[in-house]
Every structure is written in C-alpha cells, then in structure tokens.
Nucleic acid binder design. Structure first.
Length: 439
RNA sequence: CGGGGCAUAGCGCAGCCUGGUAGCGCAUCUGCUUUGGGAGCAGAGGGUCGCAGGUUCAAAUCCUGCUGCCCCGACCA
C-alpha cells in the first residue's frame, strides 16, 4: 500500500478526551474515531488490526472444533422473555421498537438466540457435541463507557456456545475453549492468565476470566508468579484427547489466580513472598459453563441412547476482539508509539523513502516495494514528500514491526537500513538481503 | 446513577473575571529553499464561539434551561 493512496489521518497532538495510552495512540495513529460515547468507527489502519485479531481468533476456534455462523445484531424481545432475562438485564440492554411496534433489542449476547437455533434442528445425542460461534457486534449500554475501546458500549465479540449431552461432555467442551484461548492470546503476543471468575448475570458455576497484566488494567488481580512462565500448548494439541486437555487445564488452574471479586486474601498471603504478583489486569476473555440454565426453560433437549429427552448442557465463551486491539497496545508500546507484534500488525513492513523525489531513493524504494509485494508481504510505502524526521515519527507511531529506511547516505554504499520497531535495533544491508530477511 | 470538569478553526489552547474588530501554535493550501529524527521563509484559506431563550444600544464574555463529551466512584465482555 502506498501511503499516498491510503487513508491514515495521523494526529500530531493528543485529543484531550484520551486518558489511557491505548486510547491516545489509537486516535493519534488514525486507527479509530469516536462517534458517540463508547461508540467508535474503525478507520483503515485500525480495521486491519481488528481483522488480524479476528482471524487468529477464528483459526483457533476452528482448530478446537468450533463452527462459525453469524447471528444478527437485532433480536426479538420474545426470545429473551423465554429465558427470563428480558426483565433481568435492565437498562444495559438497548431496547428498540420496529415500525410495527414489535419489541426488539440490540443483542448484548446471544445465548437465547443460539439456543433457539439449536432447538430448532438438533434432536439427537448423536449430533453432539456441538460448538457454534460467531464474531458480531454487541451493544451494552454501559452507564459510563470509558478508556476508548477498552470499555465501549458497542464492541465486537467472539462468542461461542457449546452443547453437550451431560456435564462431563460439557467440561470437555469447556476445556477445549480453555486451551484454544491460551493459544489465541499467546499468538497475539499476550500472556493471558486464566483466573477464577465471578459468573455474573449469565450464571453457572465453572468460569474463568482470561486476564492480561497491564498498568492501566481496570481491575486488581492476584496470581502466582509462575503463571508468567507457563508454556502454552502448541498447535499440534489434540482437542479430542480428553485426559490430555484436562491435564493442561489442571496445570493452568493449579496455582493461585483470582480477580479482586474472587480474591482470597488468606490464600494469597500463604504464597511465598517472591511468588506473589499483585497487579492491574485487563479481561480479554471469559468462559462459562452454565449447565441447563437456558436449555431447560427454552426446551433445548436431545434424546439420549435410552430414548429419554434431556436438556443439553451448555457453556458460553467470549473474547473481545475490539478490546484486544487496545489491550495489545497497552502491552506493546513505548514513548514513540505502538509496537505491534507481527501477528496482528496492520502492515509487516514500512518503506521510508527518506528523500522523496530523488532519483536514486525513489528507484530503490519502488524496487523494494514491488519485490516485497510480489512475495505477498503487507508493506506500507511511505511515499509522501515529507522530511525524514516526520516519516520516522509516523512509522514509529503506527508501530509497523519493520522499517526499511532508504536514503542517499546508505544508497551511496549500495545499502538500506533495516530497523526493528520492537527494540529499535538497526542494520545496514544490501536491498536484496533486506528483502530476503523479511520474506 | 452520585460527585467534579469541559464545550471557541481539523487538533491543542488563549480570550470570558471587567460586554464593543475572534486570536495563538500545529495541521491545510500556494511559492521558493530544504531533505537521516515531527524543516525555514513568504503568502493564503478556514470559526452561525455546543443549542435555545433572556438581559443589553451591543453577548464568545452576564443570566436561565437544555444537549454533548471527559474524569472519579458504584456497575460490567
């Protein structure tokens, strides 16, 4: 992508409404724009990151055996009357009437709808287990939205719903998601720690929040230090290996880890002094097992081998991709801007032509640009007529992992400079070598 | 929802107390010079001062009401 043909509205100064670093940097980097309290438009750069995140989420959901579908944002109120949650949800739910005065709502979550879909088609235990997910916008009319994408009212959520004949099956489904989540966050450069969680209005009795540690986190969390070094299962993990998955989950839940709501001060104090980690955390995922809470009132039943109909055991599993954009920035930034992990970077490499209009640098830049594109690499070519300093600042701000600096000085020796954004390291290379390095 | 604050050009702000020509920096446009860490000079464009009432000869400025947004707290993926 040539910057001259892209839409990247960089802000040199920070809009005053932005308090936390991810919010500031997203606005400055031209990733998003606020349209109302807690409601944002994703601009092209932000969308690229969001899509990368969604794709990782999708790959890991698929790998674990979950199946993607897409439910609507608007739902009929009647479904929610069946579960009893239409009244329970309160003002957080955005209620709407259509032209026929039918009561609708903008979905804050989808348990009722997925249960409705399930019960319409599934009759037999032979069709289970089943895990259906979608990635869709949600709306929760928070009293006080804040911190940009971190706590918006409209947010993108991946929500998966599992269906099993019995509790043992449901626990395995839960474990699959547990492991899929470990992998998902790790791939984004985040060390997420599963913590014992409150089940909240969704209900149930088996639940974990996946928390990443960050100074600007919204809640106090407490955990054992060893979690920070635990290895995440590799992509060869066998999701059908019931005891194997259980062993992994047991390991990841063996040590103390809790958010402030579930904090047990005595248990935490009992840990060795150097093992105690008390920090701020950002919730990036939440998984629940809630049994027959919805299947029973909504009559989502299957016949077992014995011919008896029983309500299915369900769980639901959320990840907030839009919040993750902010969370990743909180974990990966410095004074100059964002430092995207490769896996979610909006572009893999930025070419900075340090003397636009100069025959030699123009030619070298074009050549490298074409070569990288030919290899299918996401490259942003800064081809505007700006001074070097300005190009450096822009590239550092938007956080592209690699920068190729092409200037007259280097070219005089037949070299360009390759800079790694993460640690600022740089080296002079022949253009072909820089290209090879990035391939 | 309780408490606090803000609203003046795209962004950041001054002006308001003490009413009288709407200003500064950055950004934008034109030209020339410049080109390895947010360039210099010269010129230009851009604002119903959040909205609605009121006071006054006259309101960005004083008064009343409303709306939007931000922060702290309570609540949540």
């Amino acid at each position: 992508m040539r910057l001259s043909r892209f839409f990247l509205p960089i802000l040199r100064e920070t809009p005053k409404e932005a308090e936390i670093v991810s919010h500031r940097l997203m606005l400055r980097a031209g990733m998003m724009r606020q349209e109302a309290a807690g409601i944002y438009a994703f601009l092209p750069l932000g969308l690229r990151v969001l899509q990368k995140i969604c794709n990782i989420v999708r790959e890991e959901q698929n790998r674990s055996g979950a199946i993607e579908l897409l439910m609507p944002t608007l739902q009929p109120a009647d479904l929610w009357r069946e579960s009893g949650r239409y009244e329970d949800y309160g003002k957080e739910m955005l209620r709407i009437k259509d032209r026929h005065a039918r009561e609708m709502l903008y979905g804050p979550t989808n348990e009722e709808m997925i249960t409705d879909i399930f019960r319409a088609y599934v009759r037999s235990y032979k069709d289970l287990p089943l895990n259906l997910y979608h990635i869709q916008w949600k709306f929760r009319d928070e009293v006080r939205p804040r911190f940009g994408l971190m706590r918006g009212r409209e947010f993108l959520m991946k929500d998966a719903y599992s269906f099993d004949v019995d509790q043992a099956g449901a626990v395995h489904s839960y474990n699959k998601m547990f492991v899929a989540y470990l992998r998902t966050f790790a791939r984004m450069g985040l060390q997420a720690i599963p913590m014992v969680a409150d089940t909240g209005p969704i209900g149930g009795n088996l639940s974990h929040e996946f928390i990443i540690l960050a100074q600007t986190g919204e809640s106090e969390v407490y955990c054992h230090k060893e979690y920070l070094d635990f290895a995440v299962p590799d992509e060869g993990v066998n999701f059908d290996d019931i005891p194997g998955l259980q062993t992994t989950v047991d390991k990841w839940t063996s040590l103390y880890a809790a958010t402030s709501e579930k904090h047990d001060a005595a248990a935490f104090e009992a840990l060795p002094a150097d093992a105690k980690v008390s920090a701020r955390g950002i919730e990036v995922g939440h998984i629940f097992y809630f049994g027959t809470k919805y299947s029973e009132p909504m009559k989502a039943v299957v016949q077992g081998p014995d011919g008896v109909e029983k309500p299915v055991h369900m769980g639901s599993y959320g990840i907030g991709p839009s919040r993750l954009v902010a969370a990743i920035i909180e974990a990966h930034h410095d004074e100059a801007g964002i430092k995207w992990p490769d896996s979610v970077a909006p572009f893999h490499v930025a070419i900075l032509n340090l003397k636009q209009g100069d025959g030699a640098t123009d030619q070298a830049s074009e050549k490298i640009y074409t070569a990288l594109r030919g290899k299918g690499i996401d490259v942003l070519y800064h081809d505007l007529d700006e001074r070097p300093g300005s190009k450096f600042a822009t590239a550092d701000l938007i956080g592209v992992p690699w920068q190729i600096l092409i200037g007259p000085k280097g070219l005089a020796n037949g070299q360009v400079e390759l800079k790694k954004r993460a640690d600022g390291s740089r080296e002079m290379l022949a253009p072909e070598d820089a290209i090879a390095r990035l391939s």
